[in-house]
């Protein structure tokens, strides 16, 4: 069941990457990168569970933090109130 979940998460990353490459406006690309950060964070948690390393949860936490800060900074810059 875990491996089916890994396949689903990989497909989700693939869809986000297609939107990231296609997106008509830069906000679409920004939204795709936000979604990509969340899904990748979940995937790192799953890998931590499979390898039984608790320390990888910290990697996931830092990844989510950096993704959030990057998305908010770029969105405020593109919105014109930098």
């Amino acid at each position: 069941m875990i491996y089916i979940s890994l396949v689903f998460l990989s497909l989700a990353i693939l869809f986000s990457l297609i939107r990231l490459l296609k997106g008509p406006t830069s906000f679409d690309r920004l939204l795709a990168s936000d979604t990509l950060a969340i899904i990748t964070s979940g995937l790192i948690v799953l890998v931590a569970y499979l390898l039984e390393r608790v320390i990888y949860m910290d990697v996931s936490l830092v990844y989510a933090l950096l993704g959030f800060v990057g998305v908010v900074v770029v969105a405020r810059f593109l919105g014109g109130d930098a």
């Binding site: 906000f27 969105a75 593109l78 919105g79 014109g80 109130d81």
Partner: peptide
């Protein structure tokens, strides 16, 4: 650590989506 990560995602994810929506509207998409 999973409860810590859940709290973090619950706090930050609505903020980023609302910021994207607001700045998209301000940029007249």
């Amino acid at each position: 650590k999973s409860i810590l990560l859940i709290l973090f995602i619950v706090l930050t994810n609505p903020i980023s989506s609302s910021t994207i929506a607001r700045s998209g509207r301000r940029a007249d998409i």
